[in-house]
């Protein structure tokens, strides 16, 4: 089981470097930018007043701009899930189906490892890789904190990153689940990605159309606390994400146990004729 775990972790190493550094650079930039807007709330509010509804919605609550937590949330933690989500849905959908579509899973599954242990090893390596990315991102942001007037400590932004990790884990589990139901890895990643995007826009527009709250509650971003978790994690929201992730993983595990492993070239529900 450890051989599979470390083999998969090795495969994620470039993603860890790329995504970790990218998120760290963005985080550093956002933190350092705070000083330039901290004393400009009045002028920002004046400019935003004349903007169309959609721009206001996308910009977020302007009054939050000048608070350290509001700034970090609106400019980093709220938008990062959309880009980092690409990693989540692609890797989640590819945990098994990538190797299956490449025709490599047959051989790997001929080794004496039960499907449950194989599932655990691969999911654990993805979770660790995601955790490492979040860790690098946290280090990047933390390194810039002493040079700003945010007044937030490195320890203070741990919980928002925990919240980010949980949200990404949910989308990975969802994409993994979809990969066992939908015809291909790309379609599975796309389906999970659509849910992420819809969820994001619901959160954007719920500020200008409160009636959307009912729908937004059905989507995962509602339970993601982002920068607001600097004040502490909302346990209920945390539990909702944890339960949803566990549920998606549980369904994915059951589907994998009964899965008929496809050979390369089979990309649909119907198996092509092969010898």
């Amino acid at each position: 089981m450890s051989a599979t775990f470390f083999y998969m972790l090795r495969r994620y190493r470039l993603s860890v470097v790329f995504w970790g550094l990218s998120l760290a650079v963005i985080g550093t930039f956002v933190v350092l930018m705070y000083g330039s807007v901290a004393d400009k709330q009045k002028s920002i509010e004046r400019i935003m007043k004349g903007m169309p509804l959609i721009v206001k919605a996308l910009a977020g609550d302007v009054s939050q701009f000048v608070t350290p937590v509001g700034w970090l949330h609106l400019k980093y933690f709220f938008v990062v899930p959309v880009s980092f989500g690409v990693f989540a849905v692609v890797t989640g959908a590819g945990v098994f189906v990538h190797d299956e579509e490449q025709g490599r899973l047959d051989l790997l599954m001929a080794y004496p490892l039960s499907r449950t242990r194989l599932f655990l090893a691969r999911c654990a390596s993805l979770a660790v890789a995601t955790c490492l990315i979040v860790l690098v991102a946290w280090i990047g942001m933390s390194a810039a904190l002493p040079y700003t007037e945010l007044g937030v400590s490195a320890a203070g932004i741990v919980l928002p990153f925990v919240s980010l990790f949980l949200l990404m884990s949910f989308f990975q589990a969802l994409a993994l689940c979809f990969s066992f139901i939908l015809p291909s890895r790309n379609i599975a990643a796309g389906a999970a990605g659509i849910i992420l995007i819809v969820s994001f826009f619901l959160e954007v527009f719920v500020h200008v159309k409160p009636k959307l709250m009912m729908v937004a509650r059905l989507f995962p971003l509602r339970y993601y606390q982002g920068g607001m978790a600097t004040h502490g994690l909302n346990v209920l929201d945390l539990l909702v994400l944890l339960v949803a992730t566990s549920l998606a993983l549980g369904v994915a595990w059951k589907l994998f146990l009964s899965r008929q492993i496809r050979v390369m070239g089979e990309g649909s529900f119907r198996f092509g004729g092969h010898q």
Partner: peptide, 17 residues
Amino acid sequence: VAVRAETGYLPGELNLD
């Protein structure tokens, strides 16, 4: 698992990492 522990398998379409 027990079957695969005592079996060596070479697939017809061999694809390696």
